[in-house]
Amino acid sequence: MTMPFTPEREDFAASVADFCRRECGAREQRDALTDNGRHQHNSWLYQKMADLGWVGAGLPSEFGGSDAGMVDVCLFLETTARGMAPISGFTTSTIVAGAYQRFGSPEQRKLVLGGVAGGEVAAIAMSEPEAGSDVGALSCRAERWGDHWVINGQKTWCSNAHIANSILLVARTSSDKDKHSGLTMFHVPADVDGLRIHGIDTMGGREVNDLYFTDCELPDDAVVGQVDGAWGQLMAGLNLERLVLAAVMLGTAQRAFDDTVAYISERRQFGRPVGSFQAIRHRIADLATEIECCRLLVYRVAELVDENPDRMLPKEASMAKLKVTETAKRVALEGMQMMGGYGYATEYDMERHVRGTLISTVYGGTSEIQRDIIGKTYGL
């Protein structure tokens, strides 16, 4: 730990790190928990963390959380990612919980926030085959019929839907000239009739899904927030989403760096450790500096969020997401290069780091989108 955290936060991070070392510190343990890397979430391990009160860190105590702030959530995310704990469901659950905390009805908050704090997983469905970065172009339709809504359409790239208890759906409820004004959020139980979840095979195993809605009926009280108000609700949650993703990749970058240093310190060529060569030492120095810059940025933005949770931070949050994901990708690719053929072999974790960091610059808003947002904050 290099940040000036309070003793309580230092102890919290140490406890989480120790848990990860004991429960999933060995490659054999992680393989057993993830079916040799095919799955990114282990419910048994996640429930153990929930029983310790960790997965509800950022939630109100009235729903089983600990009333902690974003600094604590980021600390948990960084530490578990560094420990390679297979709990991908926490990321989407935290993002979804933030939306319900802001806009959900009392009943919805009790159901979802209480469930998340207790170890349930939540997912969010926004992207569609023809609406990725341009979320406002989505066409999955929700129509009101009497006292209920009927959903028809497709969603794609929905992370963790296959392990979720509920899904926060963004659907079109009107077709105004302004494409952003006709969107609405819905609470969707994952086992509702009319919803089919189909996994998408990727380099990272089973994590994302296609969702098919066919005459899927939802009660009127399934609306989260205001009808036709989802765009503003989504914008209000961007700080949380981008910061969560940045914190995960901060931990992944640090783990890839740790693994690289461990390897080049032991691997010998030309009669000495590979890491003793100046070319390698300088690479390590550059990567270490970049990671530390990322850490300072992540926790600075987290502090700003804690100071005023309602404040919009489009520039700062996008900077964190952009900088950390691009740095994590660089660290993993450089680590693979420095490890040579072994960096490419499945015997080592580096190839997993590469797969995980490559996609991080795409989901949650691509690096190009983040740059565009940052540029607009300067009036460009």
Rank of each mutant, 00 (worst) to 15 (best):
T252P: 00
V324E: 05
S139W: 04
T156W: 03
A123H: 11
S166D: 08
A222F: 02
R109L: 05
P129N: 09
E62D: 09
A81K: 02
T91W: 01
S15D: 15
A256R: 04
S105G: 10
D221Q: 12
L195E: 07
E326A: 04
Q269R: 06
M84V: 01
K155H: 14
P129M: 11
M336C: 05
T202S: 13
A85M: 08
Y344L: 13
G375F: 10
Y342S: 04
R352D: 05
A99N: 04
Q254S: 12
N42W: 01
P4V: 06
T214K: 14
T325Q: 08
L238A: 09
L297F: 09
F103G: 07
M203E: 14
I95N: 07
G275R: 13
G194M: 10
E143C: 02
G364Y: 13
G114K: 10
L245M: 11
V188H: 11
I284F: 02
F277M: 08
W157F: 12
S88N: 12
A164K: 10
G225D: 06
R371Q: 09
R268W: 11
M235A: 14
A122N: 06
C140D: 12
Y378G: 15
E217K: 14
Y299S: 02
G104D: 07
D228Q: 07
A97E: 06
S166P: 00
A26N: 08
G356C: 04
L243A: 07
M235Y: 06
L77F: 03
G340V: 02
T346A: 12
L111W: 03
T346Q: 11
F213H: 13
V362M: 14
G204D: 11
E120C: 07
M203I: 06
I264A: 00
S166A: 03
V244F: 07
Q154R: 15
I264H: 04
S93I: 00
G115D: 10
N42F: 03
G132I: 11
A328R: 03
L297Y: 06
T361V: 15
R371S: 12
I291V: 05
L380R: 14
V150T: 10
D67K: 08
Q47R: 15
L304A: 06
A222G: 10
E351A: 02
E241F: 10
F90K: 02
A131E: 09
D193E: 15
G375E: 13
A26R: 15
A125F: 12
G275L: 05
V16K: 05
G364I: 14
P106C: 00
H148M: 03
F12G: 11
R172W: 02
M126P: 03
R295K: 09
Q226W: 00
D191P: 12
M319Q: 15
W157N: 12
C294A: 13
M1C: 01
A26M: 14
G364W: 08
Q154D: 12
L75N: 05
K323T: 07
R196S: 14
F186Q: 13
V116E: 02
Q370I: 00
D210S: 08
D210A: 06
